[in-house]
Computed example of a mutant assay.
Amino acid sequence: ARSTSQGQALHFTKDEDLVGIEENKDKLVHWLTAAGGDGDDLEQSSINVTTVWGMPGVGKTTLVAHVYNMVKLDFDAAAWVTVSESYRLQDLLKKIAAELGIIVNIANVEMRGLAESIHNYLQGKIYILVLDDVWIPLVWLEIRNVFPTSNCTGRFVITSRKHEVSLLATGESALHLEPLQAHHSWPLFCKGAFWNDDDKEFPLELQKLAWKFIAKCRGLPIAIACIGRLLSCKP
């Protein structure tokens, strides 16, 4: 399992370093800040689930983290937890409580008491929860009743590599991320390889080789950025 603190630290991304996500970013912001998906404001009571899914490395977490950091101040309460394949329900609830700043005796609290603490804390609030890297729909089915649904506004974002998890979305709020096209892969690669160069342009004699690297990455932003950064250390 990946370190949560290390993983999240990598998701603080500058606007200029995000390539090819404008349309998806705008769509996600709209879904999270509209009361019923129709442009109403967040003050109206509603519960919506948004899913972002796609193959590993396609940039799901990067996109959601960017949008989450943009909108979380619009909410009374916000939490981000990484779930992973080997999650335990009680540990997941403990993480959510800790992220929300709920003070409970984590060592001794029973699952029911933990669930009640989260439920009571969120009553009457406008809140957002991100469940990152969910592998099975059961995760949501096990915890959804923990969250209040009346007299409050709840926004849930679930990222997953699994299509069946994406079906948890409310209405049409499922976003399928595809690998980047070549015209988006190139600037992302250049920004990684020449991060300390003002122009961030490849020398002509290296461009053919650069395109070979990009082709190997198959449009996956994480691979493109990592290979670019690795090459930036070479003379």
Rank of each mutant, 00 (worst) to 15 (best):
R2H: 12
Q6L: 15
Q8L: 15
T13Q: 11
D17E: 14
D17I: 04
V19P: 10
D26Y: 01
L28R: 00
W31M: 08
W31P: 00
L32K: 01
T33R: 04
A35G: 12
G36Y: 13
G36S: 05
D40E: 15
D41W: 12
I47N: 07
V49K: 08
T51L: 04
G54I: 07
G54S: 14
P56D: 08
P56Y: 06
G59Y: 10
G59F: 10
G59H: 08
K60W: 11
A65P: 01
H66S: 12
H66N: 14
V67M: 03
M70K: 14
K72P: 00
A78V: 02
A79Q: 06
V81N: 01
T82L: 06
V83E: 03
S84F: 05
E85R: 12
S86K: 13
R88Q: 14
L92E: 06
L93H: 10
I96Y: 07
G101A: 03
V104K: 03
V104F: 04
G113T: 02
H119P: 01
N120P: 01
N120F: 07
Q123M: 12
G124E: 06
I126K: 15
L131T: 06
D132G: 09
D133Q: 07
I136Q: 12
P137M: 05
W140M: 02
E142S: 13
N145W: 04
V146K: 10
V146I: 14
S150N: 12
N151S: 15
C152M: 11
T153E: 09
R155I: 04
R155S: 04
S160N: 07
R161H: 07
T170S: 15
G171Y: 02
S173L: 04
L177G: 01
E178P: 00
P179S: 10
L188K: 06
L188C: 07
C190L: 15
K191F: 10
A193G: 06
F194D: 02
D199C: 08
E201N: 09
P203V: 13
L204H: 11
Q207P: 00
A210K: 03
K212R: 11
I214P: 01
K216G: 00
C217D: 00
R218N: 14
P221V: 03
A223K: 03
A223N: 03
S232A: 11
P235L: 10
